[in-house]
């Protein structure tokens, strides 16, 4: 039979690949759009509550974006956006909300304790671990600098 490495070469050469340009453009546009919406929310929050500091306005923007991401996940829209945009909708904070809410929805059937609570972070887990570790490192460095 055909040599195995020959076959692997054939597969690597001929297997269909993701359309690079289309993926990049879609990710750029949608990711940029989400960030624009975030800026818009921040401006709106600052306009409604003029006494709010910029830091607080940023925190409220994050909360609102997370809510929107979770809500769109729950009504089954976010996966459609994600299918079109790929990284564009995965990288912003809404994508993080999506990666926590979607397993929570999925494992709802195994019950609250061993379903939702245990499985909620199966996808977001690495992000949280790296976030915490990076936080500790930065904090430790910051302590001495």
């Amino acid at each position: 039979m055909l040599d195995k490495s020959d076959y692997r070469e054939y597969v690597a050469k001929n297997a269909p690949r993701s359309p690079m340009l289309r993926s990049l453009v879609a990710a750029f546009v949608v990711g940029g759009l989400i960030c624009c919406i975030g800026e818009g929310i921040k401006d709106a929050v600052s306009a409604i509550f003029p006494s709010m500091t910029e830091e607080d306005a940023g925190a409220w923007t994050t909360i609102i974006l997370i809510f929107i991401g979770s809500f769109l996940t729950a009504i089954g829209v976010y996966d459609k956006i994600g299918r079109f945009a790929g990284g564009g909708s995965m990288i912003p904070i809404t994508g993080f909300a999506n990666s926590v809410v979607s397993p929570a929805l999925e494992y709802n059937r195994e019950g609250v304790f061993f379903g939702i609570c245990a499985k909620m972070f199966v996808i977001a887990g690495p992000i949280i671990v790296f976030g915490v570790v990076a936080g500790i490192l930065a904090g430790t460095v910051g302590l001495f600098v």
Partner: peptide, 13 residues
């Protein structure tokens, strides 16, 4: 694979 509602892209293969 992943939960149904996760917004990831499927590869062409």
């Amino acid at each position: 694979r992943y939960p149904l509602e996760l917004g990831n892209q499927r590869t062409p293969t």
